[in-house]
Amino acid sequence: IRLYEREDYRGQMIEFTEDCSCLQDRFRFNEIHSLNVLEGSWVLYELSNYRGRQYLLMPGDYRRYQDWGATNARVGSLRRV
């Protein structure tokens, strides 16, 4: 999964292949505005340590956080399923 700091895949990008319990420890931002799921399925959590609202993401492109059903861009952790 590739996470981007801004909409439309702009700004700083980070790629994950494994679970991350605290996004801010690995990426200086806690807001993700766009992403690409390259393979497999992922769950994004609004808070760190896999807490808060959850969003199940299938392979595909998500140009804005609204595309995955979120009401804001906050992402605290993520897990591959």
Rank of each mutant, 00 (worst) to 15 (best):
D61W: 02
M13R: 06
P59C: 10
T71S: 13
L56N: 11
N49V: 02
L3T: 02
N72R: 11
V43P: 00
V43T: 05
C22E: 12
N30Q: 08
R28Y: 09
Y9G: 12
A73F: 03
L44Q: 01
L57T: 09
Y9H: 15
P59T: 07
C20N: 12
Y65M: 13
I32V: 14
E46C: 03
Q24G: 10
H33M: 12
G76P: 00
E31D: 05
M13V: 11
E31F: 05
R63V: 08
G11K: 02
G52K: 00
T71E: 02
E39A: 13
L57H: 12
Y50S: 01
N30L: 04
R2L: 03
P59K: 04
C22I: 04
E39T: 12
H33P: 13
Y50C: 01
F16K: 04
N49Y: 08
G40L: 04
D61G: 10
V37A: 10
W42Q: 00
S21V: 07
S34N: 00
G40Y: 05
D61T: 08
Y65F: 03
C22F: 14
E39N: 08
Q66D: 04
V75R: 00
S48Q: 03
Y9E: 13
P59Q: 12
L78C: 15
S41M: 02
T17P: 15
Q54K: 07
Y45Q: 01
L44E: 00
S48W: 03
I32C: 11
S77F: 00
Y55I: 15
D61C: 03
L56Y: 03
E46V: 02
D25M: 04
Q54E: 10
L56W: 10
E39S: 08
Y45H: 04
L56R: 13
Y9P: 01
R6P: 00
R79G: 08
R53H: 13
Y50K: 02
S48N: 10
G40S: 08
N72F: 14
R51D: 08
Y4S: 02
V75E: 00
L38M: 08
D61R: 05
E31W: 13
L78M: 14
L78V: 09
R53M: 07
S48R: 04
L56K: 11
S77K: 01
G40D: 10
V75A: 09
R79I: 03
R6C: 13
D67E: 12
G60P: 01
C22Y: 09
E31Q: 14
C22L: 07
Q54R: 06
G11T: 00
Y62R: 15
F27Y: 07
W42G: 00
L47I: 03
S48T: 04
V43Q: 15
Y4N: 11
E15D: 03
I32E: 03
D25H: 09
V75D: 00
S48P: 14
R79F: 02
M13P: 14
C20T: 10
V75M: 08
F16E: 08
R53Y: 11
S34L: 00
N30T: 11
V43I: 01
